[in-house]
Design a protein around this nucleic acid. Structure first.
Lengths: 198, 198
DNA sequence: AGTCAAGTGGACGGGGGTCTCCACTTGTCA
DNA sequence: TGACAAGTGGAGACCCCCGTCCACTTGACT
């Protein structure tokens, strides 16, 4: 691969990550190309389809998720591990608008191995936290999806909103109480933005 | 207005409500026209823009929300009133895919009076529930928006998922505990559907 | 320096969306 | 029953998207 081509490819990827994070997955390919200072053809030469660009752009985020789970499994405190996973993944989701969409879009086919591993890791985490009596017994690992989807509904809202939601949910998941982060007045036109899509 | 025209208009409205509920706000005007057995021009004669059709189609839902709040205010038990509002509105949202989008789309301009009234009603409800000691003191009326957005993230998922989320959240809002509805295994491709948009 | 494949950009095809235009039909009222 | 305005449907203008094609440019190697 030629040096300038490699550089262009890298710049496209960077720009794509920025734009996906800011505006969601439905940003036009032309916009990415323009911001990267290349033509559309260059994009399609490196990434045969938009989906492939999305996947490539989010690979490191996916890996990050995996790392979060592994790290949590290493934590001696079961509840802290559990809580940290949820907090970190939701934070990632809240600060990157394209993440959720890329996440679910990539799930059915690609990354299925990664997904299996993360899933089992999380299930183990849940079991540990239950055994230690800090997580309610009727919590289901499927509730992680519930949390992710709910948190995904806050796309475009300030990160603090997501943090408050997560705090509420963790409160409900646990046996005990904690102080919540302060309320966030959510202006509604935040939601008027175009929704994410691959 | 001619009799057949009135009938057509009514049929369009019915069909629009059905399709918006089933497939979200991004169903094409042509699809609505086809299912209603009319041409596109007929649609645009009655509703100059798609947005106007949406607003008209959801007016009664908005009114329903208002009624829910009023009803809750009449409830002698503050917590039950509070809980019922959240449960009913979220149920409405979960069973009608276009509702959330129409709700937020309509907010900035139209229905602002209705909105004010509902908002004040809900704030009163919150205060009452707090005074009775059943709602946590740091709950903010803004958290209603948080709940609505989070619940909106479950669009397309089974209603039971929304119900579980709401139960978790109410758990967190309250002082005390309750049994949750059973977990719902959410298949992820539910989220792959095209998202709502006006 | 010369060569040439790799690289590039912009025009374009195809599809799907909203909304308009216009010739035709149909309900209604005298 | 006849006249006419209200009502109607379908073609198509316009726009935005993804992905392709092709003539041109440029880096790298001899």
């Amino acid at each position: 691969m030629r040096a300038d081509a490699r550089e262009n490819r890298a710049r496209v990827l960077t720009v794509a990550r920025e734009l996906f994070a800011e505006r969601g997955l439905d940003v036009p390919m032309a916009a990415i190309a323009r911001r990267a200072g290349v033509g559309v053809a260059t994009l399609y030469r490196r990434f045969p389809t938009k989906e492939s660009l999305v996947m490539e752009a989010f690979t490191e985020q996916f890996a990050h998720c995996q790392a979060v789970v592994d790290e949590a499994l290493a934590d001696p405190d079961p509840w802290r591990g559990f809580r940290t996973v949820i907090e970190k993944v939701c934070l990632l989701q809240a600060s990157d608008r394209g993440f959720t969409a890329a996440f679910v879009a990539g799930f059915p086919d690609l990354h299925s191995e990664l997904r299996e591993r993360s899933w089992h890791g999380f299930a183990a985490l849940v079991q540990r936290a239950k055994d230690s009596g800090q997580l309610r017994a009727d919590f289901s690992p499927h509730d992680l999806t519930l949390v992710l989807m709910a948190n995904g509904g806050l796309a475009g809202a300030p990160v603090a909103a997501s943090q408050r939601l997560v705090a509420y949910l963790l409160e409900a998941f646990r046996t005990g109480t904690d102080e919540l982060p302060p309320p966030v007045p959510l202006s509604l036109d935040l939601v008027l933005r175009q929704p994410d899509r691959v």
